[in-house]
């Protein structure tokens, strides 16, 4: 380039060398911008995580995780149960990032959390030191129509395999209206304890699991920030919130119904 320029008239506003240089610069800049824009568009649209794909314990929130993970696979290698895998091109997970599918291999919740220790960048947050604090997702008994316990049987498998039995999943006693005389034991997940390890989903005896771990954002509702639960506020205050309230007896509808 420099030699060619030397052969031409001295570089000035009108010189062909300068013109060619500017032209080349402009072309390269435009081409790069187009290409870079395309890649960015592809990357951002292809980064939606399907609900079945769960991140390892301690993973940062998905949008931050996609910036922090270098896709080295050290977490995959240090997982003693071969739970984790790196997404390959063509799979619906951001290529090269670690994930697991609970129904196939759930997280065994190792106490020393080797996957988090292995992560060099902190995409898996080293602040996570107690595996019970992990929130990989939330188990939801998503299909009550096929769950055997809901049908009145005593399957209980999801409850029995739960590493936090009686905390993350409890069995809630309920009346069986179908038989009129039996009880139902309804598996009930509690989000304050469930780590999303997926052992319940993996163990569900149905052809397709009735209980599934889904991303927290999908599973949870959120109260309006201004909502206050009266009974909790009352407990906090330690006394009725309004003085001199007269608690009248509740009137039930008459047997003949309301007219």
């Amino acid at each position: 380039m420099t030699r060619e320029q030397h052969a031409e008239p001295a570089p000035g506003p009108q010189s062909p060398g300068r013109r060619r240089f500017l032209q080349e610069m402009a072309m390269t800049a435009c081409g790069t911008a187009l290409f870079g824009g395309g890649v960015t568009l592809y990357a951002t649209t292809a980064s939606a995580l399907p609900a079945q794909a769960l991140r390892p314990p301690g993973a940062l929130a998905e949008e931050r995780f996609l910036g922090a993970c270098v896709r080295c696979g050290l977490c995959v290698r240090d997982c003693p149960y071969d739970t984790l895998d790196l997404a390959r091109l063509g799979e619906p997970v951001a290529v090269g990032t670690p994930y697991f599918v609970a129904r196939q291999v759930p997280c065994e919740m190792c106490e020393d959390i080797p996957c988090v220790k292995a992560c060099p960048t902190g995409a898996l947050d080293p602040e996570l030191t107690d595996i019970d604090d992990a929130r990989m997702g939330l188990a939801v008994l998503i299909d009550q129509e096929t769950c055997l316990n809901f049908l009145g049987l005593r399957c209980d498998v999801c409850y029995q395999v739960c590493p936090l039995i009686d905390e993350a999943i409890t069995l809630e006693l309920d009346h069986n209206d179908r038989t009129g005389k039996h009880a139902r034991f309804l598996p009930t997940v509690h989000s304050e304890a469930c780590t999303g390890c997926g052992k319940c989903e993996a163990a569900c005896v149905l052809e397709k699991a009735a209980i599934k771990v889904v991303p927290m954002a999908l599973a949870k509702g959120q109260l309006g920030s201004h909502y206050r639960l009266g009974w909790e506020e009352q407990e906090k205050a330690g006394k009725p919130l309004l003085d001199n309230i007269i608690d009248l007896p509740d009137r039930m509808p008459a047997s003949g119904g309301l007219r």
């Binding site: 870079g36 890649v39 960015t40 592809y42 990357a43 931050r64 910036g67 896709r71 090269g96």
Partner: peptide
Amino acid sequence: LLATTVTGVVVWEWV
């Protein structure tokens, strides 16, 4: 690098 800063996603690693 600019795109990565704007989107917060390491865009190049998709390709």
